[in-house]
Amino acid sequence: MKKLTILIALFGILLYIGCDKVSDPEFNIDESSCNACGYCIQICPADAIEFNSEGKAVIDQTKCTSCGKCITICPKDAIH
């Protein structure tokens, strides 16, 4: 377990240090944190968020304009 944890941490650190950031930010929803309140759906100005079959909110990346309004509204801090 320790080896796997260290491996993942090293992988992340290497990616962070060695790679450039993309020019356009992308937002995603952490399903394990989402409580399905729907606030993000109600505030999204691009109609880009919808519940999936598990009742969790999902961002449609083809419609999202990366305005970031959903981040501040999420009570569970699940949008990054």
Binding site: I8, A9, F11, G12, L15, Y16, G18, C19, D20, K21, V22, P25, E26, N28, D30, S32, H80
Partner: peptide, 23 residues
């Protein structure tokens, strides 16, 4: 403790790019 990394490989410029890191 949780960590999520999103990255992509830009085939045109042959480089790996960071999309997001969340710890």
């Amino acid at each position: 403790v949780s960590y999520v990394n999103r990255s992509c490989y830009d085939q045109k410029n042959a480089e790996i790019l960071r999309i997001s890191n969340v710890a």
